[in-house]
Structures are given as structure tokens and as C-alpha cells.
Nucleic acid binder design. Structure first.
Lengths: 221, 221
DNA sequence: TGGTGCATTTCGATA
DNA sequence: TATCGAAGTGCACCA
């Protein structure tokens, strides 16, 4: 990892063209060849960058970063170097995550109570021609219900479930198949669209669901 | 901008929980309060981060970064500081872009030739109840055509145009309205879905389109 | 201020 | 390798 603070000008040519006027910025060069241009504001996204693999040619005042894959180029014109240091970091052990959509699906598969009483799980990742449905259940009447699970329920999730339902209802062994759109939060527009199509919306409470499962179960950390 | 290289352990609690084991990493603290944890690999995305505004409390070996909005927390346990420097960068003049979707829309509005001969533009951002259609045109027969423009044509863009067309065709003053899905590149699945629904696909060439417009027009840079 | 759509999205899983 | 969906997405635009 090399960290450079420099007054510089940057031009990117690739999927688009972009230009950064002369100003002081931080240049981060990672061991894998990534190149990042950061300013002192904004969030985690750099002003400009190049994804690895890429080659860096330093020609006095002009640094040229070229993507080995796409040929995209980043030309950095250096006016003045204010800081320059290199550091050995080694390979990072990596990030452990907990709490994403997969966990919601696991929890709901383990206990379908949030959907309704007396329901049974047919299977998780129920296969269709256009991809797997998150959960396939039977309700207390034995009728099939396809469940689409999202962390945040938005309009595209409703579209996705609609496509599944259209396909599933063509199968005489399954039809009629109802739909449930389940999420930790559902946007009003998504709810309107879903209910207009006869899809029921269920808001999931992650903490409640986790609490309902045996407390002694092992956790990630 | 403060740059710290340190052996550290990081725990994030917020929309999810995440943990980073002890290892050397780069900590970037921006003037606006952003906090980034970078390793020596991956592309521009940090391992962990906090978006501004947030407060940073340094308590000897434990740094706590708290989001002022959401209350999300990042706890950084410092084992050893390998580098620590601060730099005045000032406010960045910002990025100038050329070649994104808005430009494609401008170019196609200025010259509809890529769609067909003898076409006229009704208006850009043609309003509907569920959002604006990129372009509304009339073809050489005077028939209305709704055009959805994407840089990359994928399945959700076809869904979007389908929703517009359904709505537009309910309006007796407009109907029948045809659809065109225009993009710099169209994925096979998106093309199949579009054509199955009677939507024509047009692949746009950005350089050609820019060349077709008066060369003397002022450019960004 | 909240909703929607774009992004040089990036990233991961899967066929 | 392509495709598809998720992301602590971020961000700009618009109501």
C-alpha cells in the first residue's frame, strides 16, 4: 500500500470521460494494483479509480494507470507531491457478516409463523425456469404460497415475484399459487403495486424472529 | 484528511453486524467526518466505513465512530499505530463527467435518426403517473412511440418500459403507443423479453451520435 | 424530506 | 465465464 498526497489533475477515459481539475488529493495504490483518487469529502467512493488488474507507469509528472482488461485509462498529472509513504499490510483476513437477506430466509424457513398459522414449508429456493423462489409454502388450507423475501421491499421485488407467480400458475400441479411479499420494511409504492396484484405484504421483525428461534443456537460471533 | 496505518480490529453494528479480525489496515478520516477502513486489496470499496455526518471519539486504544443520523457504530480497537499523518486538502473542485445516460438522452433528443427516418420529438421526460418516460416521439406515420434509454439494457429496464406502455395505452389521446428500448448494449435476456412484448430494441453508438451533432457545439472539456 | 432511478456501480453466487 | 440479484450500496433529482 502506497499513500501519496499530491496536487494533481486527473483524466479518465473508459466507459465515460471524466476530468478532475488541479487540486490536492490523496492517491491510494493498493498491492493488487488498484488505484484510488480520494478527496477530503464524500463518502467511501473515490472521485476516480481503477479496478485491478492494472499497470501504473510513472513518467516524471505524468502517471498513467491502464486497466489490463478494458484498456480504460487514468492519467494523473502531478504538480507537487506533499506526502509519499509505503506500507506492508499483508493479506486481510476478511469480513464476517451477519444479518442479511439469507438470515431472514433461514429464520422464516425455520418458523413460518409470521406468514400465518398452521403453515408448512415445501422448500427453500424452490426452482422455476427463471430462477428460484425464496420460499414455497402451503397455507392452512393446503394451498401453495410463493414467498419473496427482501430486506427492503421495493418495486422490483414485486415485479420479480409477479414473474414467478405467472410461471408457477401455469403448472397445474401447483396452481393456484398465491404470493407473499415479505420484507423488514416495505415502501408504499411497492405495497400498492403488490396489493393491486393480489400479493399480500408481510413486514418482518428480525429481532423478534431471531428471538423466536431457540436462544441456545450458535451465532457467528 | 488524516491517514493512519495501524494494526486494528473493527466491529460494525448498524444495519448489519460485521467483524474484522486484527490485522494491519489503512484508516482514512476525511474532513467531513467520513471514516474508511481499507485493506491492501479489493477495489474501491472499503472493508468498513461510516458515512458523514459522524462523530469520532478516540479513547486510547478504542476508537468509536458513531453516525449522527442512524446511530450506527464502528468500534476500532488499535493494537499498534504504524503511521499517522494529517493533510489540508481544501474543498475539491469536483468531477466533470461526459457520457452517462443523461447525455445519451440529450443526443437522441437532438437527433432521433437512430430510431428511424422522419421521426419527431414530442418531448423529453414525458410525464406519466408512475414517472417520466425518457423520450416521447412520433414516427413517420405520426404514431406515438415511447423510448426508454439505458446505458446498459437489462431486464428491469424492459419491465420499466412495459409499465409505462401499459399506462400510456390507456390514454385514448395517445394510444396506440409503441415502445423502443434503446441502449449502448442490450443483454440477450433483456432483448428476448422486450421483443416478446413487441418492444423494438435499438443499440446506440455514443461516438456516432456525438459525431452526428454539429461539430462546432461547445463541449464540456 | 422522502421516493425513484442511475452508477466507470461493486460484489458474490450460480449455471 | 456470463448472468442475476443484493448492497451497511451512494448519489442526484424531483415531488
Amino acid at each position: 500500500m502506497r499513500l501519496v498526497v499530491a496536487r494533481c489533475e486527473v483524466d479518465y477515459t473508459g466507459r465515460l470521460s471524466a476530468h478532475l481539475p488541479m487540486a490536492p488529493r490523496v492517491l491510494m495504490m493498493k498491492a493488487d494494483g488498484s488505484f484510488l483518487v480520494h478527496s477530503d469529502g464524500g463518502s467511501y467512493k473515490p472521485l476516480n479509480w481503477m479496478t485491478p488488474p492494472c499497470t501504473i507507469v510513472e513518467d516524471e509528472k505524468l502517471w498513467t494507470v491502464t486497466s489490463k482488461k478494458s484498456g480504460d485509462q487514468l492519467k494523473v498529472t502531478i504538480d507537487e507531491i506533499l506526502h509519499d509513504s509505503s506500507h506492508e499490510l499483508g493479506i486481510d483476513p476478511g469480513l464476517q457478516k451477519d444479518g442479511v437477506e439469507a438470515h431472514l430466509q433461514e429464520l422464516l424457513a425455520a418458523d413460518t409463523a409470521p406468514l400465518g398459522k398452521g403453515w408448512s414449508l415445501v422448500r427453500r429456493e424452490f426452482p422455476t425456469a427463471i430462477g428460484p423462489v425464496d420460499l414455497m409454502c402451503r397455507n392452512s388450507d393446503g394451498k401453495h404460497v410463493a414467498v419473496e423475501i427482501k430486506r427492503r421491499g421495493e418495486i422490483d421485488g414485486v415485479e420479480q415475484l409477479t414473474r414467478y407467480l405467472e410461471l408457477l400458475n401455469r403448472d397445474p400441479l401447483l396452481a393456484p399459487v398465491e404470493g407473499i411479499f415479505a420484507a423488514q420494511a416495505i415502501k408504499p409504492q411497492a405495497r400498492v403495486l403488490a396489493e393491486d396484484r393480489g400479493i399480500r405484504c408481510v413486514v418482518l421483525d428480525y429481532d423478534d424472529m431471531r428471538g423466536a428461534i431457540d436462544e441456545s443456537q450458535p451465532r457467528l460471533f
